[in-house]
Simulated assay, not measured.
Amino acid sequence: MPTRPLVLVDMLSYTGTKGGMETYTRELYRALGRMDTGLDFVALASKEGAALDLSWFPGEVIASRISGENRFVWAFGELVASSWTASRRKAQLVHSPATLSPMWTSMPTVVTIHDMLYWSHPELMTTPLYTRPVMWMEKRGAANAAHVITDSEVSGDEIVKYLGFPRQRLHVVPLAAEHPDSPPAPAQRPENLVVASGQRRPHKNWDRLVRALALVEEDVRPRLVITGARGDDPLAPVVAETGMGEWVELRGWVDDAELADLRSRARALAFPTLAEGFGLPILEAMAEGLPVIASDLPVLREVGGDAALWFDSLDLDSIADALRTVATRPEVLPGMAAAGLEQARLFSWERVAHETLAVFRTALAAR
Rank of each mutant, 00 (worst) to 15 (best):
M1K: 11
T3C: 09
R4N: 10
R4H: 11
P5E: 08
P5K: 06
V7W: 04
V7G: 02
V7I: 09
V7P: 03
L8Y: 04
V9N: 00
V9S: 03
D10C: 03
M11Q: 13
M11D: 05
L12A: 10
L12E: 12
S13R: 12
T15N: 11
G16A: 08
G16N: 08
T17D: 09
T17M: 07
T17F: 06
K18R: 15
K18M: 04
K18Y: 00
G19Y: 06
G19R: 06
G19P: 08
G19S: 14
G20L: 04
G20P: 07
G20D: 04
G20K: 02
M21S: 14
M21E: 09
E22M: 09
E22Q: 12
T23H: 01
T23A: 02
T23P: 03
T23K: 01
T23I: 09
Y24I: 05
R26F: 00
R26Q: 13
R26H: 05
E27I: 03
E27Q: 15
E27D: 14
E27Y: 08
E27S: 12
L28D: 07
L28G: 05
Y29M: 02
Y29S: 00
Y29F: 15
R30V: 00
R30N: 04
A31K: 10
A31M: 09
A31Y: 05
L32H: 13
L32I: 08
G33K: 09
R34N: 04
R34Q: 02
D36V: 08
T37I: 01
T37Y: 00
T37G: 01
G38A: 04
G38H: 06
L39G: 01
L39Q: 08
L39Y: 08
L39I: 06
L39F: 09
L39D: 10
D40S: 13
D40L: 11
F41M: 07
F41K: 01
F41E: 04
F41A: 02
V42A: 08
V42D: 01
V42K: 08
A43Q: 01
A43D: 00
L44R: 04
L44A: 06
A45Q: 12
A45P: 14
A45G: 14
S46K: 14
S46Q: 12
S46A: 13
K47Y: 13
K47A: 15
E48N: 07
E48G: 03
E48Y: 07
G49K: 13
G49Q: 14
A50F: 02
